[in-house]
Nucleic acid binder design. Structure first.
Lengths: 194, 194
DNA sequence: GCCTTTATATGATGATGATCATATTAGACG
DNA sequence: CGTCTAATATGATCATCATCATATAAAGGC
Protein backbone atom coordinates (compact mmCIF):
# COMPACT_ATOMS: atom_id res chain seq x y z
CA UNK A 1 0.00 0.00 0.00
CA UNK A 2 1.74 3.10 -1.29
CA UNK A 3 -0.38 5.67 0.51
CA UNK A 4 -1.33 5.37 4.12
CA UNK A 5 -4.35 3.23 4.84
CA UNK A 6 -6.42 6.20 5.82
CA UNK A 7 -5.38 8.69 3.18
CA UNK A 8 -8.12 8.08 0.67
CA UNK A 9 -10.78 7.84 3.31
CA UNK A 10 -9.73 11.15 4.73
CA UNK A 11 -9.86 12.76 1.34
CA UNK A 12 -13.27 11.30 0.80
CA UNK A 13 -14.44 12.72 4.09
CA UNK A 14 -13.13 16.14 3.18
CA UNK A 15 -15.03 15.99 -0.10
CA UNK A 16 -18.22 14.88 1.62
CA UNK A 17 -17.95 17.64 4.19
CA UNK A 18 -17.37 20.23 1.49
CA UNK A 19 -20.35 18.82 -0.38
CA UNK A 20 -22.52 18.88 2.72
CA UNK A 21 -21.92 22.61 3.05
CA UNK A 22 -22.16 23.38 -0.64
CA UNK A 23 -25.33 21.40 -1.14
CA UNK A 24 -27.04 23.25 1.64
CA UNK A 25 -26.03 26.69 0.51
CA UNK A 26 -26.50 26.22 -3.21
CA UNK A 27 -28.77 23.24 -3.62
CA UNK A 28 -28.02 19.94 -5.33
CA UNK A 29 -28.39 21.48 -8.79
CA UNK A 30 -26.55 24.60 -7.85
CA UNK A 31 -23.18 23.07 -7.09
CA UNK A 32 -20.78 21.54 -9.50
CA UNK A 33 -18.50 18.62 -8.92
CA UNK A 34 -15.46 20.75 -9.75
CA UNK A 35 -16.52 23.41 -7.28
CA UNK A 36 -16.92 20.93 -4.46
CA UNK A 37 -13.59 19.31 -5.19
CA UNK A 38 -11.94 22.72 -5.19
CA UNK A 39 -13.53 23.49 -1.83
CA UNK A 40 -11.97 20.29 -0.55
CA UNK A 41 -8.59 21.40 -1.91
CA UNK A 42 -8.55 19.11 -4.93
CA UNK A 43 -9.28 19.25 -8.63
CA UNK A 44 -12.23 17.66 -10.33
CA UNK A 45 -10.26 14.85 -11.91
CA UNK A 46 -10.06 12.48 -9.00
CA UNK A 47 -13.73 12.68 -8.25
CA UNK A 48 -14.76 9.46 -9.89
CA UNK A 49 -12.18 7.56 -7.93
CA UNK A 50 -14.29 8.35 -4.88
CA UNK A 51 -17.87 8.36 -6.11
CA UNK A 52 -19.61 6.61 -8.97
CA UNK A 53 -21.69 9.69 -9.76
CA UNK A 54 -22.56 13.13 -8.56
CA UNK A 55 -25.77 11.73 -7.15
CA UNK A 56 -23.83 9.36 -4.92
CA UNK A 57 -21.97 12.36 -3.54
CA UNK A 58 -25.21 14.21 -2.88
CA UNK A 59 -26.51 11.19 -0.99
CA UNK A 60 -23.35 11.08 1.12
CA UNK A 61 -23.56 14.83 1.65
CA UNK A 62 -27.13 14.64 2.89
CA UNK A 63 -26.27 11.83 5.27
CA UNK A 64 -23.35 13.87 6.51
CA UNK A 65 -25.46 17.01 6.91
CA UNK A 66 -28.09 15.24 8.98
CA UNK A 67 -25.41 13.35 10.85
CA UNK A 68 -23.39 16.38 11.82
CA UNK A 69 -26.51 18.22 12.96
CA UNK A 70 -27.43 15.22 15.06
CA UNK A 71 -23.95 15.05 16.59
CA UNK A 72 -23.98 18.73 17.36
CA UNK A 73 -27.30 18.53 19.15
CA UNK A 74 -26.24 15.42 20.97
CA UNK A 75 -23.27 17.36 22.28
CA UNK A 76 -25.36 20.39 23.19
CA UNK A 77 -27.97 18.41 25.02
CA UNK A 78 -25.70 15.91 26.68
CA UNK A 79 -26.86 15.29 30.19
CA UNK A 80 -29.80 17.67 29.91
CA UNK A 81 -33.32 16.82 30.94
CA UNK A 82 -35.91 16.27 28.25
CA UNK A 83 -37.34 19.69 28.78
CA UNK A 84 -33.92 21.32 28.68
CA UNK A 85 -32.93 19.44 25.57
CA UNK A 86 -36.07 20.53 23.81
CA UNK A 87 -35.60 24.14 24.85
CA UNK A 88 -32.00 24.07 23.68
CA UNK A 89 -33.07 22.61 20.37
CA UNK A 90 -35.64 25.32 19.76
CA UNK A 91 -33.28 28.06 20.90
CA UNK A 92 -30.60 26.86 18.56
CA UNK A 93 -32.80 26.07 15.59
CA UNK A 94 -35.11 29.03 15.41
CA UNK A 95 -32.44 31.70 15.28
CA UNK A 96 -30.96 34.34 13.05
CA UNK A 97 -27.74 32.39 13.08
CA UNK A 98 -29.50 29.44 11.52
CA UNK A 99 -31.36 31.70 9.11
CA UNK A 100 -28.11 33.24 7.94
CA UNK A 101 -26.04 30.08 7.70
CA UNK A 102 -27.80 27.45 5.66
CA UNK A 103 -24.46 25.85 4.82
CA UNK A 104 -24.19 24.49 8.35
CA UNK A 105 -27.86 24.28 9.14
CA UNK A 106 -30.61 21.73 9.18
CA UNK A 107 -31.19 20.11 5.81
CA UNK A 108 -34.93 20.22 6.39
CA UNK A 109 -34.77 23.99 6.33
CA UNK A 110 -32.44 24.05 3.37
CA UNK A 111 -33.21 21.29 0.95
CA UNK A 112 -36.89 20.66 1.46
CA UNK A 113 -38.13 22.12 -1.77
CA UNK A 114 -35.32 20.64 -3.85
CA UNK A 115 -36.07 17.20 -2.72
CA UNK A 116 -39.09 16.14 -4.72
CA UNK A 117 -37.03 16.78 -7.84
CA UNK A 118 -34.15 14.55 -6.86
CA UNK A 119 -33.54 10.94 -7.65
CA UNK A 120 -34.77 8.15 -5.45
CA UNK A 121 -31.50 7.62 -3.63
CA UNK A 122 -31.33 11.27 -2.61
CA UNK A 123 -34.91 11.31 -1.44
CA UNK A 124 -34.30 8.19 0.59
CA UNK A 125 -31.28 9.72 2.29
CA UNK A 126 -33.34 12.76 3.13
CA UNK A 127 -36.25 10.77 4.44
CA UNK A 128 -33.91 8.71 6.59
CA UNK A 129 -32.42 11.85 8.08
CA UNK A 130 -35.75 13.50 8.60
CA UNK A 131 -37.18 10.50 10.38
CA UNK A 132 -34.25 10.19 12.67
CA UNK A 133 -34.54 13.88 13.51
CA UNK A 134 -38.23 13.54 14.29
CA UNK A 135 -37.56 10.51 16.43
CA UNK A 136 -34.88 12.37 18.34
CA UNK A 137 -37.22 15.27 19.02
CA UNK A 138 -39.97 12.87 20.04
CA UNK A 139 -37.61 11.44 22.63
CA UNK A 140 -37.31 14.83 24.27
CA UNK A 141 -41.03 15.30 24.73
CA UNK A 142 -42.54 14.80 28.20
CA UNK A 143 -43.08 11.13 28.88
CA UNK A 144 -46.82 11.56 29.11
CA UNK A 145 -47.08 13.01 25.61
CA UNK A 146 -49.58 11.04 23.54
CA UNK A 147 -48.47 10.27 19.99
CA UNK A 148 -45.03 11.81 20.41
CA UNK A 149 -43.91 11.22 16.81
CA UNK A 150 -46.80 13.23 15.51
CA UNK A 151 -46.15 16.07 17.92
CA UNK A 152 -42.48 16.01 17.07
CA UNK A 153 -43.17 16.12 13.34
CA UNK A 154 -45.41 19.08 13.88
CA UNK A 155 -42.73 20.84 15.91
CA UNK A 156 -40.12 20.24 13.26
CA UNK A 157 -42.56 21.52 10.65
CA UNK A 158 -43.12 24.73 12.52
CA UNK A 159 -39.45 25.28 13.28
CA UNK A 160 -38.27 24.59 9.77
CA UNK A 161 -41.13 26.61 8.32
CA UNK A 162 -40.24 29.55 10.52
CA UNK A 163 -36.62 29.50 9.44
CA UNK A 164 -37.64 29.20 5.79
CA UNK A 165 -39.96 32.17 6.08
CA UNK A 166 -37.35 34.15 7.96
CA UNK A 167 -34.97 33.49 5.07
CA UNK A 168 -37.44 35.02 2.68
CA UNK A 169 -37.75 38.19 4.71
CA UNK A 170 -35.13 40.67 3.68
CA UNK A 171 -35.40 42.96 6.65
CA UNK A 172 -33.20 41.58 9.42
CA UNK A 173 -35.07 43.18 12.28
CA UNK A 174 -38.35 41.86 10.96
CA UNK A 175 -36.93 38.36 10.51
CA UNK A 176 -35.50 38.52 14.01
CA UNK A 177 -38.86 39.45 15.44
CA UNK A 178 -40.56 36.66 13.54
CA UNK A 179 -38.09 34.10 14.86
CA UNK A 180 -38.35 35.36 18.43
CA UNK A 181 -42.12 35.11 18.23
CA UNK A 182 -41.86 31.64 16.79
CA UNK A 183 -39.50 30.48 19.54
CA UNK A 184 -41.82 31.80 22.18
CA UNK A 185 -44.88 30.31 20.56
CA UNK A 186 -43.29 26.92 20.08
CA UNK A 187 -41.99 26.69 23.60
CA UNK A 188 -45.29 27.83 24.97
CA UNK A 189 -47.01 25.19 22.96
CA UNK A 190 -44.64 22.56 24.26
CA UNK A 191 -45.42 23.59 27.78
CA UNK A 192 -41.87 24.71 28.44
CA UNK A 193 -43.06 28.18 29.19
CA UNK A 194 -46.40 28.92 30.72
CA UNK B 1 -51.18 46.46 -36.04
CA UNK B 2 -51.06 43.17 -37.91
CA UNK B 3 -52.01 40.95 -35.01
CA UNK B 4 -54.91 41.72 -32.73
CA UNK B 5 -54.19 44.08 -29.89
CA UNK B 6 -54.41 41.32 -27.34
CA UNK B 7 -52.58 38.55 -29.14
CA UNK B 8 -49.13 39.11 -27.74
CA UNK B 9 -50.46 39.73 -24.26
CA UNK B 10 -52.38 36.49 -24.37
CA UNK B 11 -49.32 34.60 -25.49
CA UNK B 12 -47.34 36.17 -22.72
CA UNK B 13 -49.95 35.11 -20.20
CA UNK B 14 -49.86 31.56 -21.50
CA UNK B 15 -46.10 31.53 -21.12
CA UNK B 16 -46.29 32.93 -17.60
CA UNK B 17 -48.89 30.38 -16.57
CA UNK B 18 -46.81 27.56 -17.99
CA UNK B 19 -43.82 28.96 -16.15
CA UNK B 20 -45.75 29.27 -12.91
CA UNK B 21 -46.50 25.56 -13.03
CA UNK B 22 -43.07 24.50 -14.24
CA UNK B 23 -41.22 26.59 -11.72
CA UNK B 24 -43.16 25.06 -8.88
CA UNK B 25 -42.73 21.50 -9.99
CA UNK B 26 -39.12 21.68 -11.10
CA UNK B 27 -37.66 24.74 -9.45
CA UNK B 28 -36.22 27.82 -11.09
CA UNK B 29 -33.01 26.02 -12.05
CA UNK B 30 -34.80 22.90 -13.07
CA UNK B 31 -36.80 24.31 -15.94
CA UNK B 32 -35.51 25.50 -19.23
CA UNK B 33 -36.80 28.32 -21.33
CA UNK B 34 -37.40 25.99 -24.26
CA UNK B 35 -39.37 23.61 -22.07
CA UNK B 36 -41.63 26.33 -20.77
CA UNK B 37 -42.23 27.71 -24.23
CA UNK B 38 -43.10 24.25 -25.46
CA UNK B 39 -45.56 23.83 -22.59
CA UNK B 40 -47.18 27.06 -23.76
CA UNK B 41 -47.37 25.66 -27.29
CA UNK B 42 -44.51 27.70 -28.74
CA UNK B 43 -40.86 27.28 -29.54
CA UNK B 44 -38.00 28.87 -27.67
CA UNK B 45 -37.24 31.43 -30.36
CA UNK B 46 -39.80 34.03 -29.52
CA UNK B 47 -39.01 34.06 -25.87
CA UNK B 48 -36.89 37.17 -25.84
CA UNK B 49 -39.61 39.12 -27.54
CA UNK B 50 -41.59 38.66 -24.35
CA UNK B 51 -39.00 38.74 -21.57
CA UNK B 52 -35.59 40.31 -21.30
CA UNK B 53 -34.20 37.29 -19.48
CA UNK B 54 -35.13 34.02 -17.91
CA UNK B 55 -35.02 35.70 -14.53
CA UNK B 56 -37.72 38.16 -15.60
CA UNK B 57 -39.92 35.20 -16.48
CA UNK B 58 -39.30 33.59 -13.12
CA UNK B 59 -40.31 36.81 -11.41
CA UNK B 60 -43.51 36.94 -13.45
CA UNK B 61 -44.12 33.26 -12.74
CA UNK B 62 -43.79 33.74 -9.00
CA UNK B 63 -46.15 36.69 -9.04
CA UNK B 64 -48.59 34.61 -11.03
CA UNK B 65 -48.25 31.63 -8.70
CA UNK B 66 -48.96 33.70 -5.61
CA UNK B 67 -51.66 35.60 -7.44
CA UNK B 68 -53.52 32.56 -8.64
CA UNK B 69 -53.41 30.98 -5.19
CA UNK B 70 -54.78 34.18 -3.76
CA UNK B 71 -57.58 34.29 -6.30
CA UNK B 72 -58.47 30.71 -5.68
CA UNK B 73 -58.75 31.21 -1.94
CA UNK B 74 -60.66 34.42 -2.43
CA UNK B 75 -63.19 32.43 -4.43
CA UNK B 76 -63.30 29.59 -1.92
CA UNK B 77 -63.82 31.84 1.04
CA UNK B 78 -66.12 34.34 -0.54
CA UNK B 79 -68.80 35.32 1.90
CA UNK B 80 -67.45 33.07 4.64
CA UNK B 81 -66.90 34.18 8.19
CA UNK B 82 -63.35 34.63 9.43
CA UNK B 83 -63.44 31.34 11.19
CA UNK B 84 -64.85 29.53 8.18
CA UNK B 85 -62.31 31.12 5.86
CA UNK B 86 -59.48 30.05 8.10
CA UNK B 87 -60.81 26.51 8.38
CA UNK B 88 -61.22 26.31 4.63
CA UNK B 89 -57.70 27.54 4.15
CA UNK B 90 -56.23 24.94 6.45
CA UNK B 91 -58.38 22.19 5.00
CA UNK B 92 -57.28 23.04 1.50
CA UNK B 93 -53.64 23.71 2.23
CA UNK B 94 -52.68 20.86 4.50
CA UNK B 95 -53.81 18.04 2.26
CA UNK B 96 -52.52 15.16 0.19
CA UNK B 97 -53.76 16.94 -2.85
CA UNK B 98 -51.48 19.84 -2.14
CA UNK B 99 -48.62 17.51 -1.25
CA UNK B 100 -48.97 15.70 -4.55
CA UNK B 101 -49.44 18.72 -6.78
CA UNK B 102 -46.72 21.24 -6.23
CA UNK B 103 -47.26 22.60 -9.73
CA UNK B 104 -50.48 24.24 -8.67
CA UNK B 105 -49.71 24.70 -5.02
CA UNK B 106 -48.47 27.37 -2.70
CA UNK B 107 -45.08 28.74 -3.68
CA UNK B 108 -44.08 28.87 -0.03
CA UNK B 109 -44.29 25.11 0.12
CA UNK B 110 -42.56 24.68 -3.20
CA UNK B 111 -39.87 27.27 -3.71
CA UNK B 112 -38.81 28.15 -0.21
CA UNK B 113 -35.43 26.50 -0.24
CA UNK B 114 -34.60 27.62 -3.78
CA UNK B 115 -35.13 31.20 -2.93
CA UNK B 116 -32.04 32.25 -1.07
CA UNK B 117 -30.05 31.24 -4.15
CA UNK B 118 -32.00 33.38 -6.56
CA UNK B 119 -31.34 36.89 -7.73
CA UNK B 120 -32.70 39.91 -5.95
CA UNK B 121 -35.67 40.42 -8.25
CA UNK B 122 -36.87 36.86 -7.68
CA UNK B 123 -36.48 37.12 -3.93
CA UNK B 124 -38.41 40.36 -3.93
CA UNK B 125 -41.26 38.81 -5.87
CA UNK B 126 -41.37 35.95 -3.41
CA UNK B 127 -41.26 38.20 -0.39
CA UNK B 128 -44.05 40.30 -1.82
CA UNK B 129 -46.20 37.22 -2.32
CA UNK B 130 -45.40 35.80 1.07
CA UNK B 131 -46.27 39.00 2.86
CA UNK B 132 -49.56 39.35 1.08
CA UNK B 133 -50.37 35.75 1.98
CA UNK B 134 -49.57 36.34 5.63
CA UNK B 135 -51.64 39.51 5.64
CA UNK B 136 -54.56 37.67 4.14
CA UNK B 137 -54.38 34.95 6.78
CA UNK B 138 -54.04 37.57 9.50
CA UNK B 139 -57.29 39.09 8.28
CA UNK B 140 -59.09 35.82 8.96
CA UNK B 141 -58.00 35.57 12.57
CA UNK B 142 -60.50 36.44 15.29
CA UNK B 143 -60.71 40.17 15.78
CA UNK B 144 -59.41 39.99 19.29
CA UNK B 145 -56.18 38.26 18.23
CA UNK B 146 -53.20 40.19 19.52
CA UNK B 147 -50.37 40.60 17.00
CA UNK B 148 -52.24 38.92 14.18
CA UNK B 149 -49.40 39.15 11.65
CA UNK B 150 -47.12 37.21 13.91
CA UNK B 151 -49.74 34.54 14.53
CA UNK B 152 -50.46 34.35 10.83
CA UNK B 153 -46.79 33.96 9.95
CA UNK B 154 -46.53 31.18 12.45
CA UNK B 155 -49.58 29.44 10.99
CA UNK B 156 -48.20 29.68 7.49
CA UNK B 157 -44.89 28.34 8.75
CA UNK B 158 -46.52 25.31 10.27
CA UNK B 159 -48.76 24.64 7.31
CA UNK B 160 -46.01 24.98 4.73
CA UNK B 161 -43.62 23.02 6.92
CA UNK B 162 -46.14 20.21 7.24
CA UNK B 163 -46.64 19.98 3.49
CA UNK B 164 -42.88 20.04 2.93
CA UNK B 165 -42.35 17.24 5.38
CA UNK B 166 -45.25 15.27 3.94
CA UNK B 167 -43.56 15.58 0.55
CA UNK B 168 -40.45 14.00 1.96
CA UNK B 169 -42.34 11.02 3.31
CA UNK B 170 -42.59 8.32 0.71
CA UNK B 171 -45.31 6.30 2.34
CA UNK B 172 -48.65 7.78 1.36
CA UNK B 173 -50.58 6.52 4.34
CA UNK B 174 -47.97 7.89 6.68
CA UNK B 175 -47.97 11.27 4.94
CA UNK B 176 -51.73 11.34 5.07
CA UNK B 177 -51.72 10.68 8.78
CA UNK B 178 -49.15 13.41 9.32
CA UNK B 179 -51.21 15.92 7.43
CA UNK B 180 -54.43 14.98 9.20
CA UNK B 181 -52.68 15.41 12.53
CA UNK B 182 -51.30 18.74 11.42
CA UNK B 183 -54.71 19.99 10.31
CA UNK B 184 -56.25 19.00 13.57
CA UNK B 185 -53.45 20.50 15.60
CA UNK B 186 -53.47 23.77 13.67
CA UNK B 187 -57.20 24.21 13.90
CA UNK B 188 -57.15 23.37 17.53
CA UNK B 189 -54.47 25.92 18.08
CA UNK B 190 -56.48 28.53 16.24
CA UNK B 191 -59.42 27.85 18.46
CA UNK B 192 -61.51 26.55 15.57
CA UNK B 193 -61.89 23.24 17.28
CA UNK B 194 -61.82 22.82 20.98
C1' DG C 1 17.56 6.71 -3.92
C1' DC C 2 14.47 3.70 -7.09
C1' DC C 3 10.29 1.30 -8.52
C1' DT C 4 5.65 0.44 -8.42
C1' DT C 5 1.13 1.47 -7.31
C1' DT C 6 -2.35 4.42 -5.83
C1' DA C 7 -4.11 9.03 -5.78
C1' DT C 8 -4.67 13.14 -8.03
C1' DA C 9 -4.24 16.44 -12.01
C1' DT C 10 -4.82 17.88 -16.79
C1' DG C 11 -7.26 17.90 -20.50
C1' DA C 12 -10.89 15.96 -23.60
C1' DT C 13 -15.98 14.97 -24.81
C1' DG C 14 -20.73 15.40 -25.19
C1' DA C 15 -24.88 17.19 -23.43
C1' DT C 16 -27.66 20.85 -21.97
C1' DG C 17 -29.34 25.36 -21.88
C1' DA C 18 -29.51 30.67 -22.09
C1' DT C 19 -29.18 33.95 -25.45
C1' DC C 20 -29.18 35.93 -29.93
C1' DA C 21 -29.38 36.38 -35.35
C1' DT C 22 -31.80 35.46 -39.04
C1' DA C 23 -35.71 33.37 -41.60
C1' DT C 24 -40.53 32.52 -41.97
C1' DT C 25 -45.36 33.00 -41.23
C1' DA C 26 -49.73 34.85 -39.85
C1' DG C 27 -53.12 38.17 -40.31
C1' DA C 28 -54.92 43.21 -40.14
C1' DC C 29 -55.38 46.74 -43.47
C1' DG C 30 -55.77 48.66 -47.78
C1' DC D 1 -56.38 39.24 -52.62
C1' DG D 2 -51.87 41.20 -51.86
C1' DT D 3 -48.68 43.82 -48.72
C1' DC D 4 -46.22 44.68 -44.88
C1' DT D 5 -44.91 44.06 -40.23
C1' DA D 6 -45.39 41.99 -35.72
C1' DA D 7 -44.98 37.47 -33.90
C1' DT D 8 -42.91 33.22 -33.96
C1' DA D 9 -39.69 29.58 -35.68
C1' DT D 10 -35.18 27.74 -36.99
C1' DG D 11 -30.79 27.45 -36.25
C1' DA D 12 -26.49 29.25 -34.47
C1' DT D 13 -23.26 30.48 -30.38
C1' DC D 14 -21.11 30.28 -26.10
C1' DA D 15 -20.81 28.83 -21.53
C1' DT D 16 -21.34 25.41 -18.01
C1' DC D 17 -20.96 20.90 -16.33
C1' DA D 18 -20.93 15.73 -15.60
C1' DT D 19 -18.15 12.26 -17.00
C1' DC D 20 -14.14 9.96 -18.68
C1' DA D 21 -9.17 9.09 -20.62
C1' DT D 22 -4.76 9.82 -20.01
C1' DA D 23 -0.72 11.93 -17.70
C1' DT D 24 1.70 13.12 -13.57
C1' DA D 25 2.97 12.90 -8.82
C1' DA D 26 3.33 11.11 -4.23
C1' DA D 27 5.06 7.66 -1.02
C1' DG D 28 5.80 2.97 1.04
C1' DG D 29 8.81 -0.98 0.47
C1' DC D 30 13.27 -2.56 -1.55
Amino acid sequence: MRYSDTHKDETRKKVVRAAAAAVRSKGPEGVGVAEIMAAAGLTHGGFYAHFPSKEALIVAAIDEAFGSSARRFARLTDGASRREALATFVDTYVTMRHRDHPEGGCPVATLSSDLPRQGLAVREAYERGLKSLVRRVAGWLPEATPDPDSVAASLVAEMAGSVLIARAISDDAEADRLLADARHRIKHRMGILT
